[in-house]
Amino acid sequence: MSGPRRSTPRRNLIADPGNPALYTNRAMARLKLSQWDNAIADCHECLRLAPDSMKAHYSLSQAHLALRAYDDALAHALKAHGLCVAAADKSLATITAHVLRCKMDRWNDMERRRVRETSDLEAEMLAMLGRARDEAVREAAAAAADQDEGTRREIGAEWDAKIGRLRAVFEDARPQKEKLRVVPDWAIDDISFCFMADPVITKTGKSYERASIIEHLRRQPTDPLTREPLYPSELRPNLDLKQACDEFLAENGWAADW
């Protein structure tokens, strides 16, 4: 059963090629099967028919994330988040978590690359200095046979000191990057205790993650602190806080999973 079905051209499985929902449904099935490229093709087909499909952007983001295309993953995650907010869709919490995940994976990838490049650079520089040192010692020995053992040792020691200084420079650069991993309280949502991706502010001046406060207001339209009436339409994005959160995350990507 599974044999012939797999070889069926995939276009044939879509009963109504003009219906965008069929493509996102199949994209989601293909995500589950780890068929990333096929899922991406379905999403693009859906977006051609319905450019504002939240599900298509969300699935596309998941597929890109799996393929480690972090910039694309984040771009589509943010697009899905925006559409989700506009439609007051119930999956906001899930999509918010996905946005943070994209940011963190993207940062981790950059961090891995940075660490690898730095250690490569360090190793190469040390090897170069080592070779230069050996050569200098050799040359000194060849140029003047009358030079005594002491002079040669002096030249060697000079180069060793240079090598030591280079090591120290790299060593100094390391701890600065390995800062103490503490997330500032202002970046944490008091409802989910998660890092905020899309902070919104209430009339009382307190900010929450949009997904969390919307979830609470759905159950009870009151301000969590004052219990005064509060409706989703009264929430405002806190742009300054969002910028501060984004800046902190750009430097400390691990915080997304705090």
Partner: peptide, 14 residues
């Protein structure tokens, strides 16, 4: 919100 949000928040409180 699903159960994983409750678990996450409780883990952080702990």
């Amino acid at each position: 919100m699903s159960a994983q949000f409750a678990t996450k928040r409780l883990g952080k409180e702990l």
